Amino acid sequence: MRLLMLGGTGFVGRAVADEALARGWQVTVFNRGHHEAPPGAAQVTGDRTSPGGTAALAQGTWDVVVDTWTGAPSAVRDAARVLAGRAGHYVYVSSRSVYRYPAAAGLDEDGPLVDASPDDGDDGDYARAKRGGELAAAEAFGDNALLARAGLIIGPRENIGRLPWWLHRIARGGPVLAPGPRELPLQYIDARDLAAWVLDAAARGLGGPFNVVSRPGHTTMGELLETCVRVTGGAAELRWTAPERIVAAGVEPWSQLPVWLPPGELYDTLHRGDVSRALAAGLRCRPVAETVADTWDWLQSIGGRAPQRPDRPVVGLDPGTEAKVLAG
């Protein structure tokens, strides 16, 4: 199989490229050349945000194209148009953010979507940008466009900082503000499981939208943080705290306490989506213990400091605020 990875040097794209290489696929990575391609992959350089930036893609044929673009949909449109007729399948890694908010618990792929256009050159609104990217891929590839609507993505090479923040905070030890309830079910996907499913599904010729994330409750907030304690050496003391107390203290869920959301509309939207279609199509999700341990090992291998995407805000709670909440 011949894979063209649009990107492929960061988090999800790198997981896809690595998985394809491990399978013996021929991999070509298209990016701006700021980072080297994974070992074993060919590299083609171009900037899809510049006029004529996809010219380097005018030659060649591929069985599968995987695109993780998160900016203006017009960039997906231009790439898909250039590749139409020379690629068998176009996989666009989208997001469950494309559903209109609030997305009810149990919402499947037929839920109402945000309004968007594939011709939009603005990447200011994430949900509209992702939906516009979906429309662009489908416009050029029809039934051969696979729309992988991921949820929360964690695992080695994460460049948003959610799981790395928890690992670093817990490794520091002492009392840790643990947002409850401890039994709160979580829904996420390891980037490597997303990569494996995307390649399997594309090779099988699947098309259309799929919610590609674990079943709700694949793990819990308690299991996630307790696994972080074990993996990092067990020096931290988790202080489970009621959601009402955390919110009343002005702490921002998701951004200051990554992954966590108190029960309510946003929690239902992000942690209670229906994934039966992807599960029926072969999605398999590894245990949370493996994801946490592998992410910690990766952090140690790079000196402990995770890369940070420049277009995303830094996450995490400062020590002073944490101490005040724990003392209150």
Rank of each mutant, 00 (worst) to 15 (best):
2 R>T: 15
8 G>W: 06
10 G>A: 15
10 G>F: 03
13 G>Y: 06
15 A>I: 03
16 V>D: 11
21 L>Q: 05
22 A>V: 09
23 R>Q: 11
28 T>H: 14
31 N>T: 07
32 R>V: 14
34 H>P: 02
39 P>G: 12
42 A>D: 15
44 V>Q: 08
52 G>I: 13
53 G>L: 11
53 G>Y: 08
60 G>M: 10
67 D>A: 06
67 D>H: 12
67 D>M: 11
68 T>M: 10
70 T>Y: 14
73 P>W: 11
77 R>H: 11
81 R>H: 13
92 Y>S: 01
95 S>A: 05
97 S>H: 04
107 L>Q: 15
109 E>G: 09
112 P>F: 14
113 L>Q: 09
114 V>T: 03
114 V>G: 13
118 P>F: 06
122 D>M: 07
141 F>I: 05
150 A>I: 13
150 A>D: 02
151 G>R: 02
152 L>W: 07
152 L>Q: 07
153 I>C: 09
159 N>R: 14
164 P>K: 06
167 L>E: 02
170 I>G: 00
176 V>R: 00
178 A>C: 07
179 P>K: 00
182 R>C: 00
184 L>M: 05
186 L>R: 10
186 L>P: 03
187 Q>S: 08
191 A>M: 07
191 A>C: 14
191 A>Y: 01
192 R>M: 06
195 A>P: 06
196 A>E: 01
211 N>G: 14
213 V>E: 02
216 P>L: 03
220 T>C: 11
221 M>G: 04
237 E>V: 01
249 A>I: 00
250 G>N: 01
252 E>F: 01
253 P>I: 07
256 Q>P: 03
257 L>W: 00
259 V>K: 04
259 V>W: 03
261 L>H: 08
265 E>L: 15
268 D>W: 02
268 D>L: 04
268 D>G: 06
269 T>D: 15
269 T>A: 12
271 H>Q: 15
274 D>C: 15
280 A>Q: 09
281 A>I: 08
288 V>Q: 05
296 W>A: 13
298 W>G: 12
304 G>Q: 07
308 Q>G: 06
308 Q>H: 15
310 P>W: 12
312 R>D: 13
319 P>I: 13
319 P>Y: 10
